[in-house]
Structures are given as structure tokens and as C-alpha cells.
Write a protein that binds this DNA or RNA. Structure first.
Lengths: 188, 188
DNA sequence: GTCTATACGAAGATAGAC
DNA sequence: GTCTATCTTCGTATAGAC
């Protein structure tokens, strides 16, 4: 594990808990026990570069989790995706949520970062839409269904943080499952 | 309009756009054109007090909007609630979202504020659950349905900010309407 | 690559005049 | 109630040694 990578992982953690505003150089150093002298060696662009690269890292990692989760179709996929959030919420004592959403809600510091957030989320949605279409849902129906799924899961993660329980996420997954059971053609 | 109230409205605006971290004394003064010398006169608790009171004000205002929206039942209510968000999003050029969610996602500065956020959201949920029950939904079913509605609408507001369109919110309301059409006993 | 020290700026808060 | 000036703290960034 390189110092550079440790710093980025610290950046992702801070994004999860407090959004872009929470990613300060001091906070990363305190959390990762990395040397202050290395910050501008690894990141000549300073704090802004750390935020940007942490966001990229988080976006790619979650995209991979989504794609993996969807291997057995959209219904099982959403449940696995929710299980990933459950783990994040519980291991962080409900302090951490979605790092990408946190940047969106906290207001991106600049347009480049805002655009990056939009691109990442659109990519997640595209995976979900493709999975729905592969399961037999029409392209037209897949669009609002994928939006509904992403909005409700991301919203539920936030409600889990406020209630300090995983109940909202479980409820939403159950409702989504019921909804998709009607819409997605069943096999067997 | 008193100076004190102007400052709080500025605080609510900043909460919407950037969460608690965005509510700085300087930002409020720049936005509301109120005198710097009045800050600690009206708010001896300083910045923390402004954030806390702004959150209260926002929570109460949105609770009132929810209760009003639900006057003709849950289905019409969710549509009216979404229309409120549409107005906020469009008039702010998609820069503003839900101030209470923004505090939750950005990490509340202290436990008192975190507890306040939880209380506010639980109150919104209670209104929605009561409306569902009044429409004939069982108390058991009303809980996850209200969670689903709140999570998906709040999530959609965030997606609207990233896409800079109201499409996610419209899609979610349509899906919720279809879902409730199945669950809520129809009259007539 | 990493260290210490320091410059610089932003923001919260206070003091005392009016 | 509002003013200006000032103090302090914190966070970013740089300089120069090792």
C-alpha cells in the first residue's frame, strides 16, 4: 500500500462522511497517518487534486460493485447492491454513506467536479438499465425503473444514516423487489 | 422582514446548496446584505446557532408543505410534494435541494444537530404514514411504503441536481403513483 | 520521499465606539 | 442595533533541509 494510495482511500472515507468539504489535508493526514511532507509530492494540485482523484476512485469502485452485483439479473443485483451499502453503514456506525452523492449534495467546489459526479452516476444508471433490458424489460420502461431504483436506494442510505438503522434500506429493497416482480418477465 | 429573519432565510438557502458546512457567517452576509455587526446581537451562539435555527425553520416549513400537500390523500400529496421540489430545483438552476437531507449527508457538526435532523425526517414520515392509513392502507404496510416514497423522492431530487433536469423526479412520481394505485383502496 | 517551519488567507468571534 | 477593528484558529500551500 503506497502512501499515495493510502491518502486517496482516506479521501474516499472523508467523502463518504462529509462530502467534498470534509476532505481537508489535515483530516487525511490524521486519518491515514501519512507524512505531511508527501502531500504535495504526490499531489502537486493539492487538495483539489486529492478530492478529484478520490472521487474517481470511489466512482470506479462502486461501478465495479454494481456490475458484479448485476451478474444474475436486476432483482438479485439490487439486493446485492443494498447489501454492500448495509456493510458500509454498519461498519461505519452509520457515519458513512455514498461518496458520490455526498459531493452532489454538498455542492461540488467547481464545474469539473460536478460534471464528474454526473458522469459517474449516469454510468451506474446505464449498467442498471442494461441489466433490466437484458432481463426482458423494454428500453422505454427501463429508464424510469432504473431511476426509481437508484433514487430509492440512495435515498434509503441517507435515511439509514439518520435513523441509525438499516430498516429503510431493507424496506426499499423489498418494495423494489415487489415492483420488479410485476415488471420483469419471469423465467422458469 | 427583520434582519434576524433575513439571516435565517439566507441560512436555509445555504443549507439547501451546500449543507451545514456551507453556512458561514460571511456567506450569509454576502447573500442577505445584512450588517455584520448584527450577527452576534441576534445570535449570541454564533454560527452554530444560525445553523440550528435555520434547520428548524426549514424543517417546519417543509413539514407544513407536506401536511398541506396530503390534504387530498397520499397519491395527490406525493405529486404536490414533488411539484414543490420541482419549483425549488428550477428556480435555483438545480443548485438547491433539500436542506435537511443536506445536513444529514454532509455530516452534522454535533450530535444535537444530528438528532434534530432525525426528528424532522421522522415527523415527515409520520405525516405520510398517517395519510396512507387514512386512505385505507394497513399500519404495517404504511411503514415501508412511506419509507419508499420519502427515499425515492429525496433521492430523485439529488439526481435532478446532477442531471440538471427534472426527469428523475417526474419518473419517480409516476412509478410511485403506479405503485400506490395497486396498494391504496380506490374510491368511487 | 519525507522532514520542519512558516507564509498566507479564510472564517469565527470579540471589543469598544456610535 | 450597527459600526470598524482586531484577535484567534484553522487549513492550504510553500521553502529549504535531510
Amino acid at each position: 500500500m503506497t502512501t499515495r494510495h493510502k491518502m486517496l482511500l482516506g479521501g474516499v472515507e472523508l467523502l463518504r462522511e462529509r462530502g467534498a468539504a470534509g476532505v481537508t489535508v489535515d483530516a487525511i493526514l490524521a486519518r491515514t497517518a501519512t507524512p505531511r511532507g508527501s502531500v504535495y509530492h504526490h499531489f502537486p494540485g493539492g487538495r483539489g487534486q486529492i478530492i478529484s482523484e478520490s472521487l474517481d476512485l470511489a466512482g470506479d469502485a462502486i461501478a465495479a460493485i454494481i456490475d458484479d452485483s448485476l451478474a444474475d439479473g436486476p432483482v438479485a443485483g439490487l439486493r446485492r447492491f443494498a447489501a454492500f451499502w448495509t456493510q458500509i453503514l454498519q461498519t461505519s456506525d452509520f457515519k458513512a454513506g455514498c461518496p458520490v452523492i455526498a459531493v452532489a449534495v454538498g455542492g461540488a467546489p467547481d464545474d469539473e467536479l460536478a460534471h464528474k459526479v454526473a458522469t459517474i452516476i449516469e454510468r451506474w444508471q446505464a449498467s442498471l438499465r442494461a441489466s433490466l433490458v437484458a432481463a426482458g424489460v423494454s428500453e422505454q420502461r427501463a429508464v424510469p425503473l432504473a431511476t426509481m431504483a437508484m433514487a430509492s436506494i440512495e435515498g434509503a442510505v441517507i435515511l439509514c444514516r439518520t435513523t441509525r438503522t438499516i430498516t429503510p434500506l431493507n424496506d426499499v429493497v423489498d418494495e423494489l423487489t415487489a415492483m420488479l416482480a410485476i415488471v420483469v418477465p419471469q423465467r422458469g
